[in-house]
């Protein structure tokens, strides 16, 4: 039997993709399906149902954790995005040695191991940490509580996510032609108009990429909140680990994981939809 060229190509494509997909299937897809199944088994009895999920939303501490996680995630995502956008615009349209240096340095945090960065943040911002000592030099002797608090968590998220988002946005802004901006400026557009009329539409897609990956990274994060977060309320990543290892409630822990997965899936849906559009 003769195969035509496109069928042959299709088979070759599939053959090249299958090995990596098999690993993905074994270490990601099967475990996800397993976790979803676990989450539907009632912690206190037998039988399938939504009992674990109902408990997540009715138990006061759990509800507080969920709201707290959403709060940290949304605030961190928006702050990272605003700061990264400003930084990327500055790096794209500014000149001089400051731009050059920031351009060289902003990659570093992306490659620093998470545990190390978190540890550095603790020694820097902790009670009697380096920053409080440096501020003492210029006569400031009151220092807010940052580590083991909401602020510290948001701070750590900014540290981890701003470089990544700045990188994405800079690369998108590199594609904005100088002539567009110059002619708009000649026509008398101010910075706000320039941003919303030209810069934002041309980098809109990339912005969604940044939002999606920051959101997914922050909502399920464990290392930073585990080391610098407050004891209560906790973010879901830490709460889930404790429910699992301290109370051995696997079904509840799975339900928490699936809940986070559902929230990420919403972001993932928008991401795929944005990517699917041409242009």
């Amino acid at each position: 039997m003769m195969m035509n060229a496109s069928v042959k190509k299709g088979i070759l494509g599939l053959a090249l993709v299958i090995p990596s997909f098999l690993i993905l299937f074994f270490v990601v897809i099967v475990p996800i399906v397993y976790a979803i199944r676990e989450s539907l088994i009632d912690e206190n009895g037998s039988g399938f149902g939504l009992a674990n999920y109902i408990r997540l939303f009715t138990e006061p501490t759990m509800r507080k954790n969920i709201i707290y996680t959403l709060n940290v995630t949304i605030v961190s995502t928006l702050l990272s995005l605003v700061i990264s956008y400003s930084l990327a615009v500055y790096l794209r349209f500014g000149h001089g040695w400051v731009v050059k240096w920031i351009n060289r340095l902003y990659f570093i945090p992306m490659f620093v191991p998470g545990v190390i960065a978190t540890y550095g943040l603790i020694t820097m911002y902790g009670n009697h940490g380096w920053l409080s000592r440096l501020l003492l030099l210029i006569g400031i002797d009151t220092f807010p509580k940052i580590i083991y608090d909401y602020n510290g968590l948001v701070l750590a998220n900014l540290w981890f996510n701003i470089p990544f988002a700045t990188m994405l946005l800079s690369s998108a802004l590199a594609a904005v032609p100088n002539s567009v901006i110059e002619s708009a400026r000649d026509a008398g557009a101010n910075i706000g108009q320039l941003f919303f009329r030209f810069v934002l539409p041309l980098s809109y897609k990339t912005m969604w990429v940044a939002i999606t990956f920051i959101f997914m990274g922050v909502i399920g994060s464990f290392t930073a909140p585990f080391l610098i977060g407050a004891n209560s309320p906790q973010v879901l990543g830490v709460a889930m680990q404790q429910v699992f290892s301290n109370y051995q409630e696997t079904h509840t822990a799975s339900a928490m994981a699936v809940l986070m997965f559902l929230l990420c899936s919403v972001m993932g849906y928008f991401y795929i939809r944005t990517m699917g559009k041409e242009g």
Binding site: L24, V28, I29, P31, I32, Y34, A35, E38, F213, M216, G217, I219, G220, F222, L236, G237, M240, Q241, F244, T250, A253, S254, M256, A257, V258, M260, F261, C264, S265, M267, G268
Partner: peptide, 13 residues
């Protein structure tokens, strides 16, 4: 999917 499901939950499964 590797980034959408919380790592801790994935590792447990």
């Amino acid at each position: 999917l590797t980034h959408a499901f919380p790592k801790m939950g994935l590792y447990v499964s």
